[in-house]
Amino acid sequence: MEGACGAWSAGQGARAALLFRTARLLARARFARDDRRHATVSANLGLIALSRGQGARGRRHLERALRAWDRAAPDLERLRTAPRSRSSMFHLRMEARHRETFQANLALRMGRFAAETRETITLRLAGKPTPHRHLTRWRGEKPPYFDDTRWFLAACLLIVES
């Protein structure tokens, strides 16, 4: 997905479409049906189709993305992360003592990302521009560790900007 988004940003539309179709095949083979990453692939395929003037195809993909996003498992409650390295013993102890609070704040923050992504899909389906940045935010938000936060943010932010 990241490579496909990069190809799109570099003006390589055909390569991006091929990589997104490959990502769709991988998602079908590896992820549960209620995984939000299915919606992300469909949204990207829809946005590419719309940019090519293929309105009907683009809307079908975006409708599929919206259905997939809405049927996704309530995964915010089950997001789990390993304790992070902290810059001081104080912060490390604070996280250890208040793990539930850290998890609640994480779920709240990820919920905001999810709401923005759903809004983006809905607005683009209606032919309207979106006020949200996704791909450019991924570059800044991308966690350096591979846990639930990373896959969830990938589902929310690896969307091409058109």
Rank of each mutant, 00 (worst) to 15 (best):
M1R: 04
G3L: 11
S9Q: 12
A10H: 03
G13T: 15
G13R: 09
A14N: 12
R15G: 08
A16R: 00
L19T: 05
L19Q: 03
F20W: 04
L26W: 10
A27I: 04
A27G: 06
F31Y: 09
A32D: 12
R33G: 14
D35W: 02
R36F: 06
R36T: 13
R37C: 05
R37E: 02
A39F: 00
A39N: 01
V41Q: 00
V41G: 00
A43C: 07
N44V: 14
S51P: 05
S51N: 05
G53D: 05
Q54H: 08
G55E: 06
A56V: 15
A56N: 03
A56E: 04
R57P: 11
R57S: 14
G58K: 00
G58R: 00
R59T: 11
H61K: 01
E63P: 06
A65H: 00
L66R: 04
A68T: 09
D70N: 12
D70F: 05
P74S: 14
E77N: 10
R80F: 03
T81M: 07
A82P: 07
A82R: 10
A82V: 01
R84A: 06
S85Y: 04
M89G: 13
H91G: 07
L92Y: 10
R93T: 14
R93W: 13
R93G: 13
E95W: 00
R97Y: 09
H98V: 10
T101F: 09
T101Y: 10
N105E: 14
N105A: 04
L106E: 07
A107M: 05
L108H: 11
M110C: 10
R112A: 10
A114S: 09
A115P: 01
T120I: 08
L123C: 03
A126K: 10
A126E: 09
G127V: 09
G127K: 02
G127T: 08
T130P: 01
P131N: 11
P131W: 04
H132I: 04
H132Y: 10
H134S: 07
L135Y: 14
R137I: 02
R137F: 00
W138L: 03
R139A: 07
R139N: 15
G140A: 01
E141M: 02
K142S: 07
F146H: 15
D147A: 03
D147L: 02
T149L: 10
W151L: 10
F152D: 08
F152Y: 11
L153D: 12
C156K: 03
L157V: 12
V160I: 15
